[in-house]
Design a protein around this nucleic acid. Sequence first.
RNA 1: GGGCAAGUAGCCAAGUGGCCAACGGCAACAGACUGUAAAUCUGUCCUCUUCGGAGUUCGGUGGUUCGAAUCCAUCCUUGCCCA
Length: 425
Amino acid sequence: MNLIQELRWRGMIQDIMPGTEEQLNKEMTSAYIGFDPTADSLHIGSLVPILLLVHLQKAGHKPFALVGGATGMVGDPSGKSEERNLLSEEVLKRNQEGVKKQLMQYLDFDPARPNSAEMVNNYDWFKDFTFLHFIRDVGKHITVNYMMSKDSVKKRLEGDSGMSFTEFTYQLVQGFDFYWLYKNKNCKLQMGGSDQWGNIVTGTELIRRKDGGEAFAFTCPLITKADGGKFGKTEKGNVWLDPQKTTPYQFYQFWLNASDEDAEKWIKIFTFLTKDAIDILIHEHKMNPASRTLQKTLALEITVFVHGKEELEKALETTEKLFANQNAPAESLSVDDLEQMEGVIKSIYEKNKIEAGIDIVSFLAETGIFPSKGEARKMVQGGGVSINRKKAGTADINIDAAFLLHKKYILVQKGKKNYYLVEAI
RNA sequence: GGGCAAGUAGCCAAGUGGCCAACGGCAACAGACUGUAAAUCUGUCCUCUUCGGAGUUCGGUGGUUCGAAUCCAUCCUUGCCCA
């Protein structure tokens, strides 16, 4: 199976330019994907492009990861209904560093390999590119008519919020990236999310018009959820790749909670398991959906890929303790069990206040588990809070020393899945 | 510079003097059912609250009025048309 066939059955190809497959079969091809430094960490949405690069490298081609130091300053209008706010230069700089560090861990940068990965930053070639040179060398080759026919632009022109010249120019800036890489790194292929198609095509067009060169492209579909919700969001917001922002446990849980339908799609995209292996898993899962084979495998594979084996072990352990024996009383958990739970949010509380007794609502608010007493009360009354695995049905429960596990901990659940460990000091 | 239209909660979107913390939808969170799914049903969803209420909102400011998201003035922002 060649690279394109492989990616096709995985459902990772949306649009593809004619000739791309032939080019990849012909020779080792350099290809790139751009990552915009809109935050100081990548989130799981960026995982798909990363995986594309990994697949590419596995197939013997040379991947380039481009950090959009320059494009990040402009703002990509694709998929945005409104003009975006510009990020300050310090923020961008910090983000670039963060993104760069993360990309480093997923690709093989060993220069001994003929197809070692490379990291580039488009800020490097844009910082000294003057406006005049830009409009002469780049702008001259692309007509405004062409630019306006792009979906990202058309939507904004038809909509009622307009579009600034800055964002309008974005596709040229990104297009020039491709040209630059083509010229200087012999890069002939660009990949990206399907929302990038327009921008990518501007690049191939620029290469053709400026140099008469031929360049290729394909995009992957944007990841969606079967229920129409946004992919990669949880109560706490984005699911990040940075373990400081999303702990490996939370990360693991995110994948474990995938619906059957999504899991079947995602396991192809987010793991490197072979077609045969996946077919078997899907079959097994259908025989016995309750065992959640697909979700478990998916979560396991992807957590190892992103955080490593060791972190996965910890995540599994915590999961085991918290969910395997849901009915086991909290008292059965050892001190070690409690202390080593990773991904459980910990907070501290004054011991003497507990010993004196305190109403549950104040307790929940003061430990920071809920932002206010009002919210804590509502959630308790709605049956959404458990203390030491026992549902707190009314707001008049009094927390006292009897609630302390091992004389120092209280395990609080907000909903079924959000655990908090309060330590009394 | 001139004319027209618009700006309401995270988003979409009603409301056009009192019954407005503001219809409805989406998203989000929780409960029931389940498989730590999905679908469905229920509740919450501006802030705080001793759950009785209290406080701050409808682009900004100033005004009219007993009373304004709603009327007037002015400014800002956006779109469309003309120059």
